[in-house]
Design a protein around this nucleic acid. Structure first.
Lengths: 219, 219
DNA sequence: CCGAATTGTCACAGGGTTGTCACGCAATTG
DNA sequence: CAATTGCGTGACAACCCTGTGACAATTCGG
Protein backbone atom coordinates (compact mmCIF):
# COMPACT_ATOMS: atom_id res chain seq x y z
CA UNK A 1 0.00 0.00 0.00
CA UNK A 2 2.33 2.64 -1.25
CA UNK A 3 2.46 5.16 -4.02
CA UNK A 4 5.71 4.08 -5.56
CA UNK A 5 5.33 0.78 -7.38
CA UNK A 6 8.94 -0.29 -7.04
CA UNK A 7 9.01 0.45 -3.33
CA UNK A 8 5.86 -1.60 -2.86
CA UNK A 9 7.44 -4.51 -4.66
CA UNK A 10 10.54 -4.30 -2.53
CA UNK A 11 8.55 -4.40 0.69
CA UNK A 12 6.29 -7.13 -0.61
CA UNK A 13 9.25 -9.27 -1.61
CA UNK A 14 10.90 -8.92 1.75
CA UNK A 15 7.78 -9.69 3.72
CA UNK A 16 6.96 -12.75 1.65
CA UNK A 17 10.55 -13.82 2.06
CA UNK A 18 9.97 -13.65 5.80
CA UNK A 19 6.95 -15.89 5.53
CA UNK A 20 4.10 -13.39 5.64
CA UNK A 21 1.13 -13.41 3.29
CA UNK A 22 1.01 -10.02 1.61
CA UNK A 23 -1.69 -8.19 -0.26
CA UNK A 24 -1.04 -4.85 -1.93
CA UNK A 25 -3.18 -1.97 -3.05
CA UNK A 26 -2.44 0.87 -5.46
CA UNK A 27 -4.36 3.59 -3.66
CA UNK A 28 -6.24 4.33 -0.44
CA UNK A 29 -9.67 3.44 -1.74
CA UNK A 30 -8.54 0.07 -2.99
CA UNK A 31 -6.73 -0.60 0.27
CA UNK A 32 -9.89 0.09 2.26
CA UNK A 33 -11.95 -2.18 0.07
CA UNK A 34 -9.52 -5.07 0.37
CA UNK A 35 -9.02 -4.56 4.07
CA UNK A 36 -12.74 -4.58 4.68
CA UNK A 37 -13.35 -7.66 2.54
CA UNK A 38 -10.67 -9.70 4.26
CA UNK A 39 -9.18 -7.99 7.30
CA UNK A 40 -5.44 -8.65 7.48
CA UNK A 41 -3.46 -9.13 10.66
CA UNK A 42 -1.57 -5.90 10.08
CA UNK A 43 -1.64 -2.95 7.71
CA UNK A 44 1.31 -0.96 6.41
CA UNK A 45 0.06 2.41 5.21
CA UNK A 46 1.83 5.17 3.36
CA UNK A 47 0.86 8.72 4.22
CA UNK A 48 1.24 9.83 0.63
CA UNK A 49 -1.35 7.97 -1.33
CA UNK A 50 -3.27 8.98 -4.46
CA UNK A 51 -7.02 9.43 -4.16
CA UNK A 52 -7.10 9.28 -0.36
CA UNK A 53 -4.15 10.03 1.87
CA UNK A 54 -2.96 7.79 4.68
CA UNK A 55 -4.43 9.90 7.45
CA UNK A 56 -7.89 9.67 5.98
CA UNK A 57 -7.53 5.96 5.28
CA UNK A 58 -6.37 5.34 8.82
CA UNK A 59 -9.38 7.13 10.21
CA UNK A 60 -11.77 5.08 8.08
CA UNK A 61 -10.05 1.81 8.99
CA UNK A 62 -10.55 2.62 12.65
CA UNK A 63 -14.23 3.38 12.19
CA UNK A 64 -14.95 0.15 10.34
CA UNK A 65 -15.64 -2.55 12.93
CA UNK A 66 -14.05 -5.12 10.65
CA UNK A 67 -10.69 -3.37 10.75
CA UNK A 68 -10.93 -1.28 13.90
CA UNK A 69 -8.52 -3.44 15.84
CA UNK A 70 -6.02 -4.20 13.10
CA UNK A 71 -2.60 -2.76 13.92
CA UNK A 72 -1.41 -0.07 11.50
CA UNK A 73 2.14 1.00 10.69
CA UNK A 74 2.39 4.36 8.97
CA UNK A 75 5.10 5.28 6.49
CA UNK A 76 5.96 8.96 6.26
CA UNK A 77 8.29 10.83 3.96
CA UNK A 78 8.91 13.76 6.24
CA UNK A 79 9.82 13.68 9.87
CA UNK A 80 7.43 16.56 10.44
CA UNK A 81 4.51 14.31 9.64
CA UNK A 82 5.35 12.09 12.57
CA UNK A 83 3.76 14.61 14.84
CA UNK A 84 0.51 14.31 13.00
CA UNK A 85 0.66 10.54 13.06
CA UNK A 86 1.22 10.39 16.76
CA UNK A 87 -0.54 13.53 17.84
CA UNK A 88 -3.78 13.33 15.98
CA UNK A 89 -4.89 10.21 17.74
CA UNK A 90 -5.13 8.39 14.46
CA UNK A 91 -4.64 5.09 16.12
CA UNK A 92 -1.52 4.14 14.23
CA UNK A 93 0.47 1.61 16.24
CA UNK A 94 3.87 2.58 14.90
CA UNK A 95 5.47 4.66 12.18
CA UNK A 96 8.54 4.66 9.99
CA UNK A 97 10.27 7.53 8.22
CA UNK A 98 11.37 7.10 4.64
CA UNK A 99 13.81 6.03 3.58
CA UNK A 100 13.78 2.91 5.69
CA UNK A 101 15.35 -0.48 5.34
CA UNK A 102 13.12 -3.51 4.81
CA UNK A 103 14.81 -5.05 7.80
CA UNK A 104 13.66 -2.15 9.97
CA UNK A 105 10.10 -2.60 8.81
CA UNK A 106 10.26 -6.31 9.49
CA UNK A 107 11.38 -5.69 13.04
CA UNK A 108 8.50 -3.32 13.69
CA UNK A 109 6.02 -5.76 12.22
CA UNK A 110 7.30 -8.61 14.33
CA UNK A 111 7.16 -6.49 17.44
CA UNK A 112 3.56 -5.45 16.91
CA UNK A 113 2.34 -8.86 15.88
CA UNK A 114 3.97 -10.43 18.90
CA UNK A 115 2.23 -7.96 21.18
CA UNK A 116 -1.13 -8.22 19.49
CA UNK A 117 -1.38 -11.92 19.05
CA UNK A 118 -0.47 -12.77 22.56
CA UNK A 119 -3.15 -10.59 24.08
CA UNK A 120 -6.05 -10.58 21.67
CA UNK A 121 -7.63 -13.21 19.42
CA UNK A 122 -9.69 -15.81 21.20
CA UNK A 123 -7.85 -19.02 20.59
CA UNK A 124 -9.54 -21.62 18.48
CA UNK A 125 -7.71 -24.37 20.26
CA UNK A 126 -7.09 -24.65 23.94
CA UNK A 127 -4.47 -27.00 25.30
CA UNK A 128 -3.65 -27.94 28.84
CA UNK A 129 -1.19 -30.77 28.99
CA UNK A 130 -2.80 -33.76 27.36
CA UNK A 131 -6.19 -32.11 27.21
CA UNK A 132 -7.08 -30.40 23.96
CA UNK A 133 -10.24 -28.46 23.18
CA UNK A 134 -10.98 -27.57 19.58
CA UNK A 135 -13.68 -24.93 19.40
CA UNK A 136 -14.47 -24.84 15.67
CA UNK A 137 -14.51 -28.64 15.46
CA UNK A 138 -16.45 -28.86 18.70
CA UNK A 139 -14.25 -31.67 19.94
CA UNK A 140 -12.32 -32.31 23.09
CA UNK A 141 -9.63 -34.95 23.38
CA UNK A 142 -7.32 -36.50 25.98
CA UNK A 143 -3.97 -37.76 24.76
CA UNK A 144 -5.28 -37.62 21.22
CA UNK A 145 -8.33 -39.70 22.02
CA UNK A 146 -11.63 -37.96 21.47
CA UNK A 147 -13.97 -37.44 24.40
CA UNK A 148 -17.67 -37.70 23.68
CA UNK A 149 -19.36 -34.64 25.13
CA UNK A 150 -22.87 -33.31 24.79
CA UNK A 151 -23.43 -29.73 23.68
CA UNK A 152 -23.99 -28.44 27.19
CA UNK A 153 -21.02 -30.28 28.61
CA UNK A 154 -18.76 -28.95 25.88
CA UNK A 155 -19.91 -25.38 26.40
CA UNK A 156 -19.39 -25.73 30.12
CA UNK A 157 -15.88 -27.04 29.60
CA UNK A 158 -15.03 -24.27 27.16
CA UNK A 159 -16.41 -21.59 29.44
CA UNK A 160 -14.30 -22.87 32.30
CA UNK A 161 -11.18 -23.36 30.20
CA UNK A 162 -11.35 -19.97 28.54
CA UNK A 163 -11.20 -18.31 31.94
CA UNK A 164 -8.67 -20.80 33.21
CA UNK A 165 -7.49 -19.97 36.68
CA UNK A 166 -10.43 -17.78 37.48
CA UNK A 167 -13.15 -18.96 39.79
CA UNK A 168 -16.58 -18.94 38.21
CA UNK A 169 -19.63 -18.75 40.42
CA UNK A 170 -22.65 -20.88 39.67
CA UNK A 171 -24.55 -17.75 38.78
CA UNK A 172 -21.95 -16.68 36.30
CA UNK A 173 -21.88 -20.15 34.77
CA UNK A 174 -25.65 -20.21 34.48
CA UNK A 175 -25.44 -16.93 32.64
CA UNK A 176 -22.58 -17.86 30.32
CA UNK A 177 -23.43 -21.48 29.57
CA UNK A 178 -27.18 -21.65 30.02
CA UNK A 179 -27.89 -18.00 29.26
CA UNK A 180 -30.26 -17.79 32.17
CA UNK A 181 -31.38 -14.44 33.45
CA UNK A 182 -32.23 -15.07 37.03
CA UNK A 183 -30.18 -17.29 39.25
CA UNK A 184 -32.44 -20.21 40.01
CA UNK A 185 -31.13 -22.25 42.85
CA UNK A 186 -30.86 -25.74 41.60
CA UNK A 187 -28.21 -28.38 41.40
CA UNK A 188 -28.08 -28.02 37.63
CA UNK A 189 -24.53 -26.78 37.47
CA UNK A 190 -23.32 -29.40 39.94
CA UNK A 191 -24.97 -32.21 38.02
CA UNK A 192 -23.38 -31.18 34.75
CA UNK A 193 -20.05 -30.78 36.44
CA UNK A 194 -20.35 -34.34 37.63
CA UNK A 195 -21.19 -35.64 34.16
CA UNK A 196 -18.36 -33.63 32.68
CA UNK A 197 -15.95 -35.04 35.23
CA UNK A 198 -17.08 -38.58 34.57
CA UNK A 199 -16.48 -38.23 30.86
CA UNK A 200 -13.19 -36.42 31.22
CA UNK A 201 -11.81 -39.20 33.37
CA UNK A 202 -8.21 -38.40 34.31
CA UNK A 203 -8.52 -34.95 32.73
CA UNK A 204 -11.05 -34.07 35.41
CA UNK A 205 -8.15 -33.08 37.62
CA UNK A 206 -8.30 -29.72 35.87
CA UNK A 207 -11.71 -29.02 37.38
CA UNK A 208 -11.49 -27.61 40.86
CA UNK A 209 -14.33 -27.01 43.25
CA UNK A 210 -13.97 -23.89 45.35
CA UNK A 211 -16.33 -24.45 48.17
CA UNK A 212 -18.70 -21.58 48.77
CA UNK A 213 -17.61 -19.82 45.60
CA UNK A 214 -17.83 -21.90 42.45
CA UNK A 215 -15.67 -23.85 40.05
CA UNK A 216 -12.27 -23.21 38.54
CA UNK A 217 -10.22 -24.66 35.70
CA UNK A 218 -6.60 -25.22 36.70
CA UNK A 219 -3.58 -26.38 34.78
CA UNK B 1 -19.52 22.95 53.22
CA UNK B 2 -18.65 24.90 56.29
CA UNK B 3 -20.42 26.85 58.92
CA UNK B 4 -18.56 30.12 58.52
CA UNK B 5 -19.60 31.82 55.30
CA UNK B 6 -16.38 33.79 54.85
CA UNK B 7 -14.25 30.71 55.41
CA UNK B 8 -16.30 28.84 52.85
CA UNK B 9 -15.78 31.60 50.35
CA UNK B 10 -12.07 31.63 50.96
CA UNK B 11 -11.77 27.91 50.37
CA UNK B 12 -14.05 28.06 47.38
CA UNK B 13 -12.02 30.85 45.81
CA UNK B 14 -8.75 29.02 46.27
CA UNK B 15 -10.03 25.75 44.88
CA UNK B 16 -11.56 27.40 41.84
CA UNK B 17 -8.31 29.27 41.35
CA UNK B 18 -6.61 25.89 41.24
CA UNK B 19 -8.93 24.70 38.54
CA UNK B 20 -11.44 22.64 40.50
CA UNK B 21 -15.20 22.83 40.11
CA UNK B 22 -16.65 23.65 43.50
CA UNK B 23 -20.12 23.34 44.95
CA UNK B 24 -20.93 24.58 48.45
CA UNK B 25 -23.62 23.86 50.97
CA UNK B 26 -24.74 25.81 54.02
CA UNK B 27 -25.52 22.86 56.26
CA UNK B 28 -25.20 19.11 56.48
CA UNK B 29 -28.61 18.31 55.10
CA UNK B 30 -28.09 20.46 52.05
CA UNK B 31 -24.65 18.96 51.52
CA UNK B 32 -26.09 15.45 51.57
CA UNK B 33 -28.79 16.35 49.10
CA UNK B 34 -26.34 17.90 46.65
CA UNK B 35 -23.81 15.13 47.05
CA UNK B 36 -26.44 12.50 46.38
CA UNK B 37 -27.86 14.29 43.36
CA UNK B 38 -24.48 14.73 41.72
CA UNK B 39 -21.67 12.91 43.49
CA UNK B 40 -18.49 14.99 43.45
CA UNK B 41 -14.98 13.62 43.20
CA UNK B 42 -14.17 14.76 46.70
CA UNK B 43 -15.95 16.22 49.71
CA UNK B 44 -14.58 18.68 52.26
CA UNK B 45 -16.64 18.43 55.39
CA UNK B 46 -16.61 20.56 58.52
CA UNK B 47 -17.26 18.77 61.78
CA UNK B 48 -19.20 21.73 63.14
CA UNK B 49 -22.23 22.10 60.94
CA UNK B 50 -25.69 23.41 61.76
CA UNK B 51 -28.57 20.94 61.52
CA UNK B 52 -26.41 17.87 61.19
CA UNK B 53 -22.83 17.65 62.33
CA UNK B 54 -19.98 16.39 60.23
CA UNK B 55 -19.79 13.02 61.91
CA UNK B 56 -23.39 12.27 61.14
CA UNK B 57 -23.10 13.58 57.59
CA UNK B 58 -20.01 11.47 57.03
CA UNK B 59 -21.80 8.36 58.19
CA UNK B 60 -24.73 9.02 55.89
CA UNK B 61 -22.45 9.71 52.93
CA UNK B 62 -20.80 6.36 53.47
CA UNK B 63 -24.08 4.50 53.63
CA UNK B 64 -25.41 6.03 50.44
CA UNK B 65 -24.14 3.91 47.54
CA UNK B 66 -23.95 7.00 45.37
CA UNK B 67 -21.39 8.62 47.62
CA UNK B 68 -19.96 5.69 49.52
CA UNK B 69 -16.66 5.82 47.69
CA UNK B 70 -16.18 9.57 47.47
CA UNK B 71 -13.11 10.66 49.43
CA UNK B 72 -13.88 12.90 52.39
CA UNK B 73 -11.63 15.42 54.10
CA UNK B 74 -12.80 16.45 57.54
CA UNK B 75 -12.17 19.86 59.03
CA UNK B 76 -11.99 19.97 62.81
CA UNK B 77 -11.64 22.85 65.21
CA UNK B 78 -10.15 20.85 68.04
CA UNK B 79 -7.33 18.40 67.89
CA UNK B 80 -9.26 16.19 70.29
CA UNK B 81 -11.85 15.56 67.63
CA UNK B 82 -9.25 13.93 65.45
CA UNK B 83 -9.54 10.80 67.50
CA UNK B 84 -13.18 10.55 66.71
CA UNK B 85 -12.58 11.19 63.05
CA UNK B 86 -9.99 8.47 62.75
CA UNK B 87 -11.07 6.09 65.45
CA UNK B 88 -14.75 5.75 64.87
CA UNK B 89 -14.40 4.24 61.50
CA UNK B 90 -16.13 7.17 59.89
CA UNK B 91 -14.32 6.57 56.70
CA UNK B 92 -12.84 10.02 56.38
CA UNK B 93 -9.79 9.89 54.14
CA UNK B 94 -7.93 12.76 55.72
CA UNK B 95 -8.47 15.56 58.21
CA UNK B 96 -7.31 19.09 58.82
CA UNK B 97 -7.22 21.06 62.04
CA UNK B 98 -8.39 24.65 62.01
CA UNK B 99 -6.93 27.08 61.43
CA UNK B 100 -5.43 25.80 58.21
CA UNK B 101 -4.01 27.49 55.16
CA UNK B 102 -5.79 27.08 51.83
CA UNK B 103 -2.50 25.83 50.46
CA UNK B 104 -2.47 23.03 52.99
CA UNK B 105 -5.97 22.01 52.00
CA UNK B 106 -5.03 22.08 48.34
CA UNK B 107 -2.11 19.77 48.97
CA UNK B 108 -4.30 17.24 50.76
CA UNK B 109 -6.87 17.38 48.01
CA UNK B 110 -4.27 16.82 45.34
CA UNK B 111 -2.79 13.94 47.24
CA UNK B 112 -6.10 12.18 47.70
CA UNK B 113 -7.28 12.74 44.15
CA UNK B 114 -3.99 11.47 42.78
CA UNK B 115 -4.25 8.37 44.89
CA UNK B 116 -7.87 7.79 44.07
CA UNK B 117 -7.64 8.21 40.34
CA UNK B 118 -4.58 6.06 39.96
CA UNK B 119 -6.01 3.19 41.92
CA UNK B 120 -9.46 3.65 40.43
CA UNK B 121 -10.00 0.11 39.23
CA UNK B 122 -10.03 -2.41 42.05
CA UNK B 123 -6.85 -4.36 41.72
CA UNK B 124 -7.15 -8.02 40.92
CA UNK B 125 -4.03 -8.87 42.80
CA UNK B 126 -2.88 -7.55 46.12
CA UNK B 127 0.70 -7.98 47.24
CA UNK B 128 2.34 -7.23 50.54
CA UNK B 129 5.83 -8.57 50.68
CA UNK B 130 5.64 -12.33 50.39
CA UNK B 131 1.89 -12.37 50.76
CA UNK B 132 -0.11 -12.43 47.57
CA UNK B 133 -3.88 -12.36 47.23
CA UNK B 134 -5.39 -13.17 43.86
CA UNK B 135 -9.06 -12.21 43.73
CA UNK B 136 -10.22 -13.81 40.45
CA UNK B 137 -8.37 -17.04 41.23
CA UNK B 138 -9.57 -16.91 44.79
CA UNK B 139 -6.17 -17.88 46.06
CA UNK B 140 -3.85 -16.51 48.68
CA UNK B 141 -0.21 -17.51 48.86
CA UNK B 142 2.84 -16.95 51.06
CA UNK B 143 6.20 -17.07 49.32
CA UNK B 144 4.55 -18.72 46.36
CA UNK B 145 2.96 -21.45 48.41
CA UNK B 146 -0.82 -21.54 48.36
CA UNK B 147 -2.74 -21.06 51.59
CA UNK B 148 -5.94 -23.03 51.93
CA UNK B 149 -8.67 -20.64 53.00
CA UNK B 150 -12.41 -21.06 53.28
CA UNK B 151 -14.72 -18.65 51.48
CA UNK B 152 -15.36 -16.57 54.59
CA UNK B 153 -11.73 -16.44 55.59
CA UNK B 154 -10.73 -15.35 52.12
CA UNK B 155 -13.33 -12.61 52.03
CA UNK B 156 -12.25 -11.41 55.44
CA UNK B 157 -8.63 -11.26 54.36
CA UNK B 158 -9.50 -9.40 51.17
CA UNK B 159 -11.67 -6.91 53.00
CA UNK B 160 -8.88 -6.15 55.42
CA UNK B 161 -6.17 -6.02 52.78
CA UNK B 162 -8.14 -3.78 50.46
CA UNK B 163 -8.38 -1.18 53.20
CA UNK B 164 -4.84 -1.80 54.34
CA UNK B 165 -3.74 0.60 57.02
CA UNK B 166 -7.25 1.50 58.10
CA UNK B 167 -8.82 0.12 61.18
CA UNK B 168 -12.00 -1.83 60.57
CA UNK B 169 -14.48 -2.15 63.37
CA UNK B 170 -16.19 -5.46 64.00
CA UNK B 171 -19.46 -3.93 62.92
CA UNK B 172 -18.00 -2.77 59.66
CA UNK B 173 -16.48 -6.18 59.05
CA UNK B 174 -19.77 -7.89 59.79
CA UNK B 175 -21.38 -5.66 57.20
CA UNK B 176 -18.73 -6.07 54.53
CA UNK B 177 -17.85 -9.73 54.95
CA UNK B 178 -20.98 -11.25 56.40
CA UNK B 179 -23.43 -8.77 54.92
CA UNK B 180 -25.30 -8.61 58.17
CA UNK B 181 -27.83 -5.90 58.84
CA UNK B 182 -27.72 -5.54 62.56
CA UNK B 183 -24.56 -5.79 64.55
CA UNK B 184 -24.95 -8.89 66.64
CA UNK B 185 -22.50 -8.93 69.47
CA UNK B 186 -20.71 -12.20 69.28
CA UNK B 187 -17.17 -13.39 69.02
CA UNK B 188 -17.76 -14.35 65.42
CA UNK B 189 -15.28 -11.92 63.97
CA UNK B 190 -12.67 -12.80 66.57
CA UNK B 191 -13.02 -16.50 65.89
CA UNK B 192 -12.56 -16.05 62.18
CA UNK B 193 -9.60 -13.78 62.76
CA UNK B 194 -8.03 -16.54 64.80
CA UNK B 195 -8.61 -19.13 62.11
CA UNK B 196 -7.27 -16.77 59.50
CA UNK B 197 -4.17 -16.12 61.57
CA UNK B 198 -3.57 -19.82 62.10
CA UNK B 199 -3.69 -20.54 58.41
CA UNK B 200 -1.64 -17.52 57.42
CA UNK B 201 1.16 -18.57 59.73
CA UNK B 202 4.04 -16.10 59.43
CA UNK B 203 1.93 -13.87 57.22
CA UNK B 204 -0.35 -13.25 60.19
CA UNK B 205 1.99 -10.47 61.21
CA UNK B 206 0.04 -8.29 58.81
CA UNK B 207 -3.06 -8.59 60.96
CA UNK B 208 -3.10 -6.12 63.81
CA UNK B 209 -5.57 -5.99 66.64
CA UNK B 210 -6.52 -2.48 67.69
CA UNK B 211 -7.90 -2.90 71.13
CA UNK B 212 -11.29 -1.35 71.61
CA UNK B 213 -11.64 -0.51 67.93
CA UNK B 214 -11.19 -3.43 65.59
CA UNK B 215 -8.65 -4.97 63.25
CA UNK B 216 -6.22 -3.55 60.76
CA UNK B 217 -4.08 -4.86 57.94
CA UNK B 218 -0.53 -3.50 58.08
CA UNK B 219 2.42 -3.92 55.76
C1' DC C 1 -44.16 -42.65 15.92
C1' DC C 2 -40.95 -44.75 18.86
C1' DG C 3 -36.65 -45.33 21.30
C1' DA C 4 -32.47 -43.36 22.83
C1' DA C 5 -29.95 -39.66 24.39
C1' DT C 6 -29.84 -35.42 26.68
C1' DT C 7 -31.15 -32.37 30.26
C1' DG C 8 -33.20 -30.16 34.40
C1' DT C 9 -34.87 -31.11 39.05
C1' DC C 10 -35.16 -33.29 43.45
C1' DA C 11 -34.01 -35.79 47.77
C1' DC C 12 -30.49 -37.24 50.55
C1' DA C 13 -26.11 -38.12 52.90
C1' DG C 14 -21.47 -37.02 54.31
C1' DG C 15 -18.23 -33.84 55.59
C1' DG C 16 -16.36 -29.45 55.79
C1' DT C 17 -17.56 -24.92 57.51
C1' DT C 18 -19.36 -21.71 60.65
C1' DG C 19 -21.47 -19.37 64.63
C1' DT C 20 -21.74 -19.54 69.53
C1' DC C 21 -20.36 -20.12 74.19
C1' DA C 22 -17.45 -20.54 78.29
C1' DC C 23 -13.13 -19.65 80.02
C1' DG C 24 -8.59 -17.64 80.86
C1' DC C 25 -5.29 -14.22 80.13
C1' DA C 26 -3.62 -9.64 79.06
C1' DA C 27 -4.31 -4.77 78.89
C1' DT C 28 -6.50 -0.84 80.75
C1' DT C 29 -8.52 1.93 84.31
C1' DG C 30 -9.23 4.09 88.70
C1' DC D 1 -3.17 -3.22 93.17
C1' DA D 2 -7.78 -4.74 92.35
C1' DA D 3 -11.50 -4.45 89.21
C1' DT D 4 -12.94 -4.26 84.73
C1' DT D 5 -12.96 -4.61 80.03
C1' DG D 6 -11.53 -6.72 75.79
C1' DC D 7 -9.44 -10.31 73.24
C1' DG D 8 -7.63 -15.03 72.20
C1' DT D 9 -8.64 -19.88 72.54
C1' DG D 10 -10.69 -24.53 72.65
C1' DA D 11 -14.63 -27.07 71.98
C1' DC D 12 -18.94 -28.26 69.87
C1' DA D 13 -23.30 -28.55 67.63
C1' DA D 14 -25.90 -26.78 63.83
C1' DC D 15 -25.73 -25.68 59.44
C1' DC D 16 -24.50 -25.23 54.73
C1' DC D 17 -22.44 -26.98 50.71
C1' DT D 18 -21.40 -30.31 47.44
C1' DG D 19 -21.49 -34.88 45.29
C1' DT D 20 -24.48 -38.45 43.97
C1' DG D 21 -28.26 -41.48 42.48
C1' DA D 22 -32.59 -41.38 40.59
C1' DC D 23 -36.27 -39.76 37.68
C1' DA D 24 -39.21 -37.18 34.64
C1' DA D 25 -39.34 -33.96 30.83
C1' DT D 26 -37.60 -32.84 26.56
C1' DT D 27 -35.17 -33.31 22.36
C1' DC D 28 -33.46 -35.76 18.59
C1' DG D 29 -32.88 -39.13 15.08
C1' DG D 30 -34.37 -43.14 12.72
Amino acid sequence: MDDEPEAVELVEFNLKQAGYAVTTAADGAEALKKAHAQPPNLIVLDVMLPEMDGFEACKVLRLDPATAKVPIIMLTAKAAEIDRVLGLELGADDYLTKPFSPRELLLRIKKILARGFLEEKPREQIRFGDLMIDLPRHVASWKGKAIELTATEFKLLVTLAQRAGRVQSRDSLLRDVWEYESAIDTRTVDTHMRRLREKLGPAAKHLDTIRGVGYRFVE
